[in-house]
Design a binder for these strands. Structure first.
Lengths: 320, 320
DNA sequence: CTAGGTGCAAATAATTTGCAGAGGC
DNA sequence: GCCTCTGCAAATTATTTGCACCTAG
């Protein structure tokens, strides 16, 4: 489960100079799991390279944050901690008040709620801090839980993102298949068939990647959830499929598809950007584009159908 | 919109001694809106009472936090800020990186998601920090937004809690009325009628309180949302009523009622505890108890019906 | 009278800065 | 050789502590 160290040159900010000391500090920092405070890092660095000044470590840390190689986090201890951002997506924290360790999670649901709240208050959000303070399982029960390193976090993130993507595509496939059989308009039916085929292809790609991932870590399946997403967990299209089952007309089916694709596009975009594994990222961003194309297709189709039906038919209601 | 200052004696922790200086510091602190840092408070206090030591202010602040009169908050500035807890429920923050002011919100959705996440990780949460950092409307557009004082926050909190309670009760009334007409079993029908009557009563009480509240502040209706709750916004029972419309049997109707009442009880309990206005708190906590009683009633009824139908009937499906 | 509150000054803790010298390009 | 990096020590900022003194109960 070892992973290559990042390319130091890539991390250097424009105009900066290479220096053995900086590289040393950076290397020690990147080797660390979890969240180091500046002084802890000074001790760690000095242990293997005595004579490195405290100020240098502080300055290097600033430089790393500026360069995007590290993130400053505040757990309310009255000092800063730092976490490597290399191959480590932005996330939220569970912070144990007893052992002062922290574990990480992501929640798409929390993120979208915060976006909505910010919008409702006309606030332009840049970043969110979400921390759950309390007592961890280990401190309460004494049961040992194995520490999770950065490489594992990355795998677990990918696992969860893939699980949700698979659920999304699976429900999408179900939705389009069902929609195709129900649609009366032949042109609309073709569109739905086409989209069903695409979702089937996506599903296959995702399942293959999921298997590749599982091969990298035999325990992967059993690790705790990192990325929570109720919306996708049940399949973004699941609600739409349910609506179909209750009976809707062709136009309404298209509208439901539009709503679902919008959510799906957003999902792939949001997590594609967070992927630190470049292959996974590529798959997600590609899918995001395709879902966006589906969206456009559905919108075009909806408009075409509406125009063909003429203004009078627009008032027609669902035929239950 | 002036409000009485809290009873200082009530805030003093057991064993503490009254002191003119402390009272002075406390008074200045409570007069402050927003979040003061310790040093800011020192300056504010010294302006009207020179010769009060910095340490005294720091110690008084500690004492206030211990006594529950103040809360320590950390906006990542490298120092603590303090907010009065008197008539001011726990909340989350929107923090402007440009003007360093903060505004507040609550979200039941975010809170329940965090409870779920904590549970999934076997973590015992004590409190949560949620901060949205970014740029506020005023800093972006230059448009002045009137500052909101503590008394207003309290009113807006009550307004939002009541709005959601009203939506909940309204959908509950709808649900039970509908359920009563659909239920075949006469005993079950009586139960639903009874519950509908109760919800109607609750609804009347809540609407009366809402009007009283509106009278206190003519602009109340137009103020921005403080408490976000998608679940209740559409009515906790709304989904249940929808299910009814699609056809369910008597047992299933009871089960849906149980699920809704559980949510409803939780809602009244959660926000009843947060109310700083004692009348509002009383109403909410009373309703929480009644919803709990409804829940018990429904559960008893469900068991009775199940036993009457006998084990074979348990396997019966919905009659669509 | 005495536990607890208070002011002042000194201590601490985390971090930053000034400056002379070292080192990369 | 220039410009940036580095180490050390001193400065700064937010907060706490020690201690002699004061005050309410």
């Amino acid at each position: 489960m070892d992973r290559p160290l990042p390319d130091l040159t890539r991390l250097r900010p424009a105009g900066g100079k290479r220096s053995t000391k900086r590289d040393r500090i950076l290397t020690v920092f990147l080797r660390q799991e979890g969240h180091v405070s500046a002084d802890e890092l000074v001790d760690l660095v000095r242990r293997e390279a005595p004579g490195i000044g405290r100020a240098t470590v502080y300055r290097t840390l600033q430089w790393m944050v500026g360069a995007g190689a590290a993130r400053k986090v505040d757990f309310g201890e009255g000092r800063w901690r730092f976490e490597a951002s290399y191959r480590h997506p932005r996330h939220f924290h569970l912070i144990c008040s007893s052992c002062h360790r922290s574990s990480e999670f992501l929640s798409s649901d929390v993120e979208s709620l915060m976006e909505e709240i910010a919008a409702a208050r006309h606030f332009a959000p840049t970043q969110s801090v979400v921390q759950i303070h309390g007592t961890c399982e280990e401190c309460r029960t004494g049961k040992q839980t194995p520490p999770i390193d950065g490489a594992t976090t990355e795998l677990v993130f990918a696992r969860d993102a893939l699980r949700m993507a698979i659920a999304t595509e699976r429900s999408g496939l179900d939705f389009y298949t069902r929609a195709a059989t129900r649609t009366k308009d032949p042109r609309g039916r073709t569109v739905f068939h086409k989209l069903a085929a695409e979702e089937r292809k996506h599903l296959a790609t995702l399942q293959k990647r999921y298997q590749e991932l599982s091969a990298k870590d035999p325990q992967l399946e059993s690790r705790p959830t990192f990325l929570f997403f109720k919306g996708a967990a049940s399949g973004l299209f699941a609600a739409g499929a349910e609506q179909l089952r209750r009976g809707v007309n062709d136009q309404q089916a298209l509208l439901i598809g539009i709503r679902c694709e919008r959510g799906s596009h957003k999902f792939f975009k949001r997590y594609g950007e967070r992927f630190e594994d470049s292959e996974g990222k590529q798959v997600f961003l590609e899918f995001a584009d395709e879902e966006r194309a589906h969206l456009d297709l559905l919108i075009r189709e909806y408009r075409a159908l509406r125009d063909r039906l003429g203004p009078r038919a627009r008032r027609a209601k669902a035929h239950r």
